[in-house]
Write a protein that binds this DNA or RNA. Sequence first.
DNA 1: CAGCCTCGAGTTCC
DNA 2: CTCGAGGCTG
Length: 765
Amino acid sequence: MAGDDEDRAVPAGEPAAPAAALPPVSSLDAEAAEAEHARLSDEVARANLAYYQEDAPFISDAEYDACKRRLEEIEVRFPHLAHPGSPTEQVGAAADTRFAKIPHRLPMLSLENGFTQGDVEAFVQRVRSFLNLAPGAALEITAEPKIDGLSLSLRYEGGWLVQAATRGDGAVGENVTANARTIADIPGQLAGDDWPDVLEIRGEVYMSHVDFEKLNQSDSGRVFANPRNAAAGSLRQLDPAVTASRPLRFFAYAWGEVSAPFARTQMEAVRRMQDFGFQTNPLTRICASVQDMLAAWAEIEQMRATLGYDIDGVVYKVNDLGYQARLGMRSTTPRWALAHKFPAERAWTRLEAIDIQVGRTGALSPVARLHPVTVGGVVVSNATLHNEDYIAGRGADGSEIRGGKDIRIGDWVEVYRAGDVIPKVADVDLAKRPPEAAPYAFPATCPECGSPAIREEGDSVRRCTGGLICPAQAVEKLRHFVSRAAFDIEGLGAKLVEELFRDGWIAEPADIFTLEDRYGPGQPRQLKNREGWGEKSAASLFQAIEKRREIPLARLLFALGIRHVGEVAAQDLARHYGSWQALEAALDTARPAAIAHRAAEEAVQAEREAAQAEGRRARPAEARAAALAQADLPADAANAWAGLIAADGIGPVLAMSLSDAFANERERAAIDRLVAHLTVLPPEARATDSAITGKTLVFTGTLEKMTRAEAKARAEALGAHVAGSVSAKTDLLIAGPGAGSKAKKAAELGIKVIDEDEWLAIAQG
DNA sequence: CAGCCTCGAGTTCC
DNA sequence: CTCGAGGCTG
């Protein structure tokens, strides 16, 4: 599953018979076919078992696919061999359905990462200013080692373990209850009797170094790359007996849903978790200052080698749980915690080639092909090179990257895994540079379609201008279209759309919804006859596509893959307009305004250049106003544009990009063809019910009991929009002392105004 | 207008 | 996960 960074160990083993050496299927007689069918079925079944249960595949994916294809061919020619138990009938590899999905009642968070002393100082400062603490006021922060394992959420009801779920993507995890029950550190029943009736304990499953070595030396023939992979592989076993035989351990450090509070501070919570019968990390401590935190970090790093288990940093948390609640969440991380990572491991290797990939928006991304090298327990053979400037070692403004050293093919380069995941090139050894190595010439044309690749002013990436003509862009757009946050059609993943695109079955999103008409029952060419497909799998894909003809507006908008319109902007737009028709109409009406605004921006640019040439001060605002006046916009266009910009989170750049997409003939036609097949669902109303849900709020003046940031976060949690200035759309103004023009304007517009105490009453509710 | 925060886009491992 | 850039705030 994507997002799951569990790796599988590949043991030495007897390889599958090479498919190439086999005679053509057409030459087989019935007897030989049956024998081979049986052999291949067995092979595939064994491979499945190894892959899914043992976490130790003995054949490569390619070999596995070859086996399955060969089986298909045989079954096409000798249909009597196809039976319900045949591996070919078990379509789409059961990878995602091995464990039941469990939605987390409270999301399992990830943490913000920091690497430097400055990051730690900034974290503490941010917390202090958010809470509006006086400079001298005490602020306790806990520090604990960050265990390098995999996180697990354990749900207890009435003191009994009822469910264990992996983190998954943070919102939905996998049910591994049976396996969790076999781990000695995880109590099946809580100790004592003083626990909340519902209690979700969260922590880290890990394996100690000693146990890891023992496991790898056992005669199972399986070799795991590192303890983390071993722990992950052991926990995700179909057979709990296998998990039970693996020496897994567990540290508790956090919690999810709780029916009643059980502590007032983080440290107290840790002690309570011990009372409940959990192991907690003995190095956890309280810090009173940034100096304390850095000292704790340094001390824990010193102990790293002798701890006996892997850690990759130190986690800091605001100790007071009341403060934690006030600080709340950003989009994916809590404001009250920071993971202070240890420096990443590095390794030197040779850069063998530089390839250029073309993305969905046409961005040309250079990728380093490296001589394989082990970095932090993982073999790395590719690394990102970001962009043209990164390779050149110098930014557009002349600033130096890596001390100005450029990267050349043939160079010795130092590689590390940023955030322990993405391989990056950190340095170049000029002393080892081959004399014939030349500076890398970044292509000026798209390597996929040959169109010019242009770098716009102020942009760091070069983009292919081919648009939908470029096959790379077209296929990346399709992959995006079927991605999880977009249409998410079951059984139609990135790999399959790519294949269907290559074969000319799907050229654009609309084609997905006519797939059955063109390749379904009764057609000359049919999906069920494709390699690896059958009657059942084809029918279920068509059914999954049918289901997605009804699509929420936000998903549709995101799926279109318009530059700058991501998941959040799509949500904002959907909520702002409420329907596809309203959005489409607004964009069409606003088009002249978009054109005028672009012209105005160009006029501003020209004015800046002219001013510089003439040595006078630029007057951008006047140039813009003049250009707009000259355009003589119809009022409805100006209004529609203003309405678009007024949407929360939508600025001129995004609005322009959206407008361009809808005005581009080719793109618009493709969108219209798609939407003709769909029923677009309006955005759901927010579930929260509070006096301010769905309302637009403006804060002004000084807030004395809460900071601005805190008030905004709280209001948004209650389903309100927080705007910066008062307009006709404003529903409520919260005015503290010193409120000025905004309060006056609100009064003119007849908008309700409340003071901070009234606001606090709402915020608490 | 500058600085902060969040979002979008691209990428690696398999 | 990170970088760059867009949008908002002060």
